[in-house]
Computed example of a mutant assay.
Amino acid sequence: MTSVRESQTETRSVVTSGGPGGTHDDAGVRGAAAPRRPFKRYFRETGWRHLVGIAVAAFAIFPLLYVFSASLNPGGTLLTANGLFRNLDFSSYASLFTSERHPYGAWYVNTLVIGLVTAAGTVLLGALAAYSFSRMRFTGRRFGLTTLLVVQMFPQMLAMVAIFLLMVAIGDIFPAIGLNSQIGLIMVYLGGALGVNTYLMYGFFNTVPSSIDEAAKIDGAGHARIFFTIILRLVAPILAVVGLLSFIGTSSEFVLASVILIDPEKQTLAVGLYKFISDEFSKNWSIFAAGAVLAAILPVALFLALQRYIVGGLTAGSVK
């Protein structure tokens, strides 16, 4: 027994020392720390990237902090908000929901409803068009794709007068979808839902193998069933991206909403918040900043919830 223990002890010492010669090599031992790189080499390879990241983060975060600090400043101007968080007063947030002249709560609900309905309609129309161009072969297919791309080259401001006159004419016949109606504004937004969204979805739809459609057709499935039960589940990332971009764009849109919506109770946040700083003698930047902070909560929350789809949805369609 004694000789066996002595041999085991000798074996452990040989293994620990790295060999019979007693030399110890840290690189061959599991868990040993890797040698540190010199600072110049570290900075040249990866260190400068951290400095760039910190600078970009500071550049992006500072305006947010400044707006939030201005919303807590009771002075009502931006000049006294240069000292960040020097004054802390939440009266501006309370004034948003107590003013009868500026119904902020109604603006928030209107923006939420218009944005969600427009996003859902944009996703549905864009997905239907992209599926048709991707899976079906028909006369005028290439011309239709080119037309959608060319139409998007012209700014929407060129059609502003035409849209206004069209909404006035429609309102004379169908007041529910004419001028000063939220449904009419949604229909105008959906009128521009195709174009770049269709092209974005078209590239993603092409990454889905057509053999899936052929197998479903053999089992007796039609285009509608294939689209709603199979394809939509496979292209969920691009649907989330288009829906998010549509919601953000609709929520921040000002020109069309200010032209079509007239009554204050029907207006959106982009139009309503402008009233706080548009008056000649009563510009209140503190309340405007408070309203902007609250208006940004929902888009930021949606962006964080859908961020795992954004990279895949924007890049997957570019490899086909």
Rank of each mutant, 00 (worst) to 15 (best):
F90R: 01
L84P: 03
L306N: 06
L64S: 15
L79D: 15
P299K: 07
G191W: 01
L234H: 05
L116A: 15
I287P: 01
Y309A: 06
A301S: 00
P74V: 03
G191C: 00
Y93A: 01
D89S: 12
N206S: 09
L84D: 06
G191S: 05
F247L: 13
L185K: 00
G171Y: 01
A257L: 02
I297N: 02
S7C: 14
A162F: 03
R233Y: 14
G192F: 02
V255S: 08
N73Y: 04
P209E: 15
L269S: 02
V271L: 03
L234M: 04
L294Q: 04
M160R: 03
A270N: 11
T77C: 13
V67K: 11
D25W: 01
T23E: 08
V56A: 10
G191A: 02
M136V: 14
L116Y: 14
T207H: 08
R101F: 06
W285Y: 12
A32N: 09
S246R: 05
L232Y: 06
F247Q: 06
G313M: 14
S251L: 10
L65A: 14
A106E: 11
A27E: 13
F85C: 12
A57R: 02
A289I: 09
L158I: 04
I230V: 14
K320Y: 00
W48Q: 05
K266Y: 12
P63I: 09
N82E: 01
T11A: 09
D26L: 13
M160E: 02
S211R: 12
L232N: 06
L185Y: 04
V15I: 11
S282H: 06
A130E: 01
N284E: 06
T118H: 08
V196W: 04
R5W: 12
D213P: 00
V117K: 02
L185F: 06
A162I: 01
L96Y: 01
R233H: 12
V123A: 04
G249P: 03
G317W: 11
R308Y: 10
Y274M: 13
S181C: 07
K217P: 04
